[in-house]
Amino acid sequence: MGCGLCQVYCKTQHSVSKDILKAFKKESPRPVSRIRVERKAEICFSLRCRHCDEPWCVYSCLTGAMHRDVATGMVVVDRNKCMGCWTCIVACPNGALTRDLDNKIVAKCDLCPGLEVPACVANCPNDALVLVEEDKEDVPEFAGSSVRM
């Protein structure tokens, strides 16, 4: 339904305080949501990094910061190595990566380490967001979007 709560909870989860108000109003550097919500007439979905099988962002990274974590299979960014050139942003055909301008580092979905279920999924009032595991990706069309592991 395009409420955008996933973005709110994403940003909060990626803040230092983990408190909505502080995350939105006080923190510096400003926390960044790693989700984009698109709404166009009846089309509406929430979008984030899909940890692709063919990660163009990884292939295109100039420093080796963007890589696939061998243990989890997730596409992750090494914050110390990222130079904030945004080549990965151009490489991602879904526009799923975001500039964290305060830190000059790319921000992306990390599936909320430490949480059993990512904040966006846990807080979706419509149950539109579902977490799917690799190779089980038959997400029904009505689901707003899959959060891919």
Partner: peptide, 10 residues
């Protein structure tokens, strides 16, 4: 520049 990735993808 954030949407240039979608354009480049196209």
């Amino acid at each position: 520049i954030e949407k240039s990735g979608m354009i480049f993808g196209l």
